[in-house]
Simulated assay, not measured.
Amino acid sequence: MSHLEHRTDHGPREPDGARRQTLARLAAFCGLALSDFALGSDVLAAATKSATQAATEATTKAARPEYLSPDELALTGVLAELIIPQTDTPGALAVEAHRTVDHLLAVCALQPAQGAFRTGLARIDAVARESDGKPFAALSPPRQAALLRAIDSGAAPFHAGDQRFFRQLKGYVAFAYYTSEAGASRELAYLPVPGGFIGHLKVTSATHTWAI
């Protein structure tokens, strides 16, 4: 859980190159553990606006969801922003990744998968209520991050089924983020028509992964 523990606040932010590396790994392999994400516990507490507040405001102002209930959509937004938070580039909430996830569930997922997703969201909320007496969205950012670390590793009070759901959620969020304009052009380096082969290209920590 190195990234979760090492990144302790929103200022100073994690170097741009390091953030691109972690998110590039996420896009390449959505089943990665939460430790490969550029998010932490104390970092979230230092945010001027929490993921919960931002998700609730975005959901309230926008159109109704296609498949999820408004509360489920808001919770998905909170989770998405915790997975890919805003730094020097937009986070998942800014690109409305939660609404893309909702759309994918509505038009692409079969009924069993739709039900499993809603069950997974309900499970996270239920654990939060049982352990802290509040829904997940009402918890402090550090507590939210602690529960996500637990579910990502399948640790108590979560189990293997919860872990599978969370990894599926990460895959949805990564897809939604990297197919957005900001994810493809600001987080990645977008090249509409790739050039010729360059056999010796110097790669540094600031080198972008390409979106083509």
Rank of each mutant, 00 (worst) to 15 (best):
V173A: 00
T87G: 12
A176G: 07
Q86E: 11
R149A: 12
A92Y: 02
F175W: 11
H6M: 11
R129C: 09
L39I: 08
S41N: 05
F29G: 05
A24R: 15
G115N: 03
T204G: 15
A155Q: 13
Q168K: 13
A18V: 07
L73I: 06
I212P: 15
H200Q: 14
G133L: 01
L4W: 12
T76G: 02
D42N: 07
K170T: 09
T179L: 04
R143G: 02
L79D: 00
I198G: 04
A92I: 04
L121Q: 03
S131I: 05
C30E: 07
L188N: 10
F166D: 01
E187Y: 14
L68S: 04
S50W: 04
V107F: 00
G115E: 03
F158W: 10
L139D: 01
A47R: 15
H10W: 13
L75S: 02
G91H: 05
A106Q: 01
L169R: 01
T119Y: 07
A155L: 10
P15E: 06
S131P: 00
G77C: 03
A155K: 15
T209P: 08
D88R: 14
A58H: 04
A113V: 05
D102W: 00
T87I: 09
A74T: 12
P12A: 07
E181V: 13
T204S: 13
G31Y: 08
G91A: 06
T119I: 07
D132H: 14
G154E: 07
T60G: 06
A63H: 09
A63G: 11
F197H: 06
S185L: 10
V43R: 10
R149Q: 14
F37W: 10
S41L: 10
A160E: 06
L4I: 09
H98N: 13
T52L: 02
P70N: 11
T48R: 15
A138W: 06
H103E: 02
I124L: 15
E66H: 12
L39P: 03
T179H: 08
A18H: 12
V101A: 02
F136G: 01
E187V: 10
D71T: 12
L169Y: 05
W210H: 12
Y67M: 03
G120W: 03
A55L: 02
L110V: 06
A62S: 13
A109K: 00
L68F: 08
S35Y: 07
D152A: 14
V78I: 04
F166R: 02
G40Q: 02
L34K: 05
A45W: 03
R99M: 08
A55Q: 00
L82R: 06
M1L: 08
C30Y: 13
